[in-house]
């Protein structure tokens, strides 16, 4: 991780004229061989060191906990149990199912948000009048706290006084949304989509406004219809921006569970018990922090792999532009 020996011109000029820096670097490093040396290094130092402090130490502790039985009373104490917690992972049928549901939930929510968000952005982009007002209103859900989205979802689907329950009944659906496994799962998925589609739409719209108009003119002169224009000109040029949206959503989609926790609590019949709900239960209902650490690390690993894949795609797209 040391900086490249060839360095560069811009980096060597700075140390001689130290301007008013907001924060001094952690260590006055002059040699270019040290990481975080040079002007760029000093710029990065405060942020990265702080980030390291708030993330690496807890991570190390979680890894230690995953190999231990965690005692809380009288101060935290770790009693080493080897790979016992990890071994349990492979014999735990709940965990396997939780991951299946997580995968489905991830694909449906993030996929739905990407598709609907892009579609919405294209509609807004084609809208001649009232685009601003519409966008302002459509963005609102992303400003709602997830815990409120969960409670609001519960309020709307309550089988006694929920507005949506009443609307569904007018439409001839007399079941109880949260009582059936499929509809409960659909409901929590839709709540997540409700909250996060606007973010994707916003990012996609930002991408759309940069599509070169010359290319669009050319396409319309060729007589290409909207679908073909979208497919061959618009989508390729906003693909990198969409990947950014995808990355932002995938970072959070696996971790957040406020909506599920506040509506179904994982039921009925475990239908909405995703890995993050299970993690929360293991830690704070069962106080089994060793096994929770294992679950947490697994989630981190999966998120990392997924994100890594999207970043690779992004990097592959970047040079093309």
């Amino acid at each position: 991780m040391d900086s490249s020996p060839t360095g560069n011109v811009r980096e060597t000029g700075s140390p001689a004229t130290p301007p008013a820096r907001p924060t001094p670097p952690a260590r006055p490093a002059r040699r270019a061989a040290l990481p975080l040396a040079g002007f760029n290094g000093r710029m990065m130092a405060p942020g990265l060191l702080l980030l390291a402090a708030v993330s690496l130490l807890p991570l190390a502790a979680v890894i230690a906990m995953s190999f231990a039985r965690v005692h809380l009373l009288g101060g935290l104490r770790l009693e080493g149990v080897g790979a016992e917690n990890w071994a349990r992972l492979f014999t735990d049928p709940d965990m396997a199912w939780a991951w299946v549901r997580t995968a489905v939930y991830f694909v449906l929510t993030v996929g739905g948000e990407m598709a609907l968000g892009t579609a919405l952005a294209v509609c807004l982009w084609r809208l001649r009048r009232g685009r601003n007002a519409a966008l302002s209103l459509l963005l609102l859900p992303m400003f709602v706290a997830p815990v409120i989205v969960g409670l609001l979802g519960r309020f709307l689907t309550d089988s006694t006084f929920g507005l949506y329950t009443w609307l569904l009944r007018q439409l001839g659906y007399n079941g109880d949304v949260m009582a059936d496994q499929t509809s409960a799962f659909a409901a929590v998925t839709l709540m997540d989509i409700w909250e996060w589609t606007p973010l994707v739409a916003l990012i996609a719209l930002a991408g759309l406004t940069t599509v070169p108009s010359s290319a669009l003119e050319a396409a319309s002169l060729d007589g290409a219809g909207l679908p073909r224009t979208l497919r061959h000109i618009v989508l390729p040029s906003i693909a990198p921006v969409l990947l950014v949206a995808l990355l932002i959503r995938s970072m959070d989609a696996l971790r957040y569970f406020d909506i599920i926790w506040n509506t179904t609590g994982g039921g009925p019949a475990n239908a909405t018990k995703t890995a993050s709900v299970q993690l929360y239960e293991t830690a704070f209902r069962f106080f089994d922090f060793g096994y929770a650490a294992v679950t947490g690390l697994l989630m981190l690993a999966v998120t990392t792999v997924v994100a890594r894949y999207f970043v690779r795609l992004l990097e592959r797209k970047e040079p093309a532009r």
Partner: peptide, 27 residues
């Protein structure tokens, strides 16, 4: 920066946001 491993550094930065809260909250 032109440091080697820049991509890894920037991915590490992103990855610190992915830690599931319930797992890291105790430490």
């Amino acid at each position: 920066t032109r440091m080697r491993g820049k991509q890894h550094l920037s991915f590490w930065v992103v990855s610190t946001r992915m830690a599931p809260i319930a797992a890291v909250v105790l430490p």
